[in-house]
Write a protein that binds this DNA or RNA. Structure first.
Lengths: 246, 246
DNA sequence: CAGTGGTCTAGACCACCTC
DNA sequence: AGGTGGTCTAGACCACTGA
């Protein structure tokens, strides 16, 4: 443990940042999985040889980034997409009427292919590497809302098939996290308005050529590693994409 | 100052939250204006009769919400839209090529009217209250990017005219903050894809009926008071709306 | 050099949860 | 009752800024 008194070191970083790295490593390695409780602040302080306040500051930051969740009186837990609190963190969809969405995912297709240059670059793979392509529809009370085309690295999601998707009751990211130990922690989205092509129009039950919201997303796991590329066509007749600027 | 030992009080709140409120009040009252330095942590601690650590925690939170800006060695400052760091906080626009945007605002029209029911409700005004309607175009190197229609409470922006807008060199929110002491701190956006009507199409130089990104924004000042309603039509041929999900 | 924010510690007590 | 996170304090020292 490098004390902050190494003033002239070029690699200086505060103690609590170093603690943060150590905790992150334990998350990456799977020592503590999604939903698990992690050791108490005082235990971690003892393990790392720092004061509880320093551990606290590290955990504070990680909780602010939704990596960990604090629960007073209980302990600190690894965040999980199973937690309903996290459910709409990556889906900024709301209905015009303002009521809560009851979304159902309908998997349409799922097959394996070799990565073209675009996908390979986006997912940081070798061109020609194995990828999975997945198409699905999101419905709100049987009304189609989003048509997604999703690209995944084949290696990480070894045995993913349409059948598994169809029989899964949970959200996609919950499945990824519980079955493949791939936890999505951050995403980057680019939004554009486009005209519906024939396929999207049919699936979303709108006229061909009508405006759709195109949402391109790159999703990252620990260490800023891209593990999903997604193009979603949002029908915004009865829904809107909600964003808060702070 | 109510100490946290008032366990059974229904209005209990931690000391640092109370400090937060006090600092916020000074911001609202204009005691410290945008860009100003605020008293040092130790001064505030003495003024409020708490320890420096407690003031620190209050300021930490407010800095995380972009109300204040810390600068090591200098002091703590009230955030301002003049700060280039804050410039793209409310404009999530990027160019397809990824280069930095050089945006110019072109005011088109500005007039006063009486609030209809929609505007009145959105801005929490009496129906019939005075409002200002403002239209403008945002251009990136002479290429039209966004057509905005903006509704403002007439009372707050007493003497706003098209001439003032045209002669202003700064961003709209910088003008609001320096000339009218109205500081925008948070916004709520709803995004949809729509077809370009004749006016928007002409201004944005796209074909009528082509898809545009419609961004409806309600902007709030201190105390969650709505002070702007805005409908922006974004041309997403050469630009996209960028959003990061964490 | 003095003043600011930034880090770290140690200890006290409160609030909440579980047994 | 005992453990957890949450709040608050006091004091030390580091890092950065500007006179």
């Amino acid at each position: 443990m490098t004390r902050p008194s190494n003033t002239h070191s070029p690699t200086f970083s505060p103690l609590y940042q170093q603690i943060r790295e150590l905790i992150t490593k334990s998350l990456e390695s799977g020592e503590w999985g999604p939903g698990d409780i992690i050791p108490s602040e005082s235990e971690l302080a003892e393990r790392f040889g720092v004061s509880q306040g320093t551990v606290r500051k590290a955990i504070d930051e990680m909780a602010a980034e939704n990596l960990l969740v604090r629960r007073q009186g209980k302990g600190t837990f690894v965040d999980t997409h199973e937690d309903p609190r996290s459910y709409f963190r990556f889906l900024r969809l709301a209905s015009n009427e303002g009521d809560l969405l009851a979304l159902k995912s309908v998997p349409l297709e799922c097959w394996r292919a070799k990565a073209g240059t675009d996908v390979a670059r986006t997912l940081a793979l070798e061109p020609g590497a194995s990828i999975i392509i997945l198409r699905r529809l999101l419905q709100n009370e049987n009304e189609p809302a989003v048509f997604d085309e999703i690209y995944l690295p084949g290696e990480l999601f070894s045995d993913l098939t349409l059948d598994i998707l169809k029989s899964s009751e949970m959200s996609l990211y919950s499945l990824f996290e519980s079955r493949y130990a791939v936890r999505m922690i951050r995403a980057d989205e680019r939004l554009r308005a486009v005209s519906a092509d024939r396929v999207s129009a049919e699936l979303l039950q709108v006229a061909e050529g009508s405006p759709l919201l195109l949402v391109e997303r790159i999703t990252f796991t620990y260490g800023n590693k891209p593990v999903e590329w997604r193009r979603g066509f949002y029908s915004t007749q009865n829904f809107y994409y909600h964003n808060e600027l702070g």
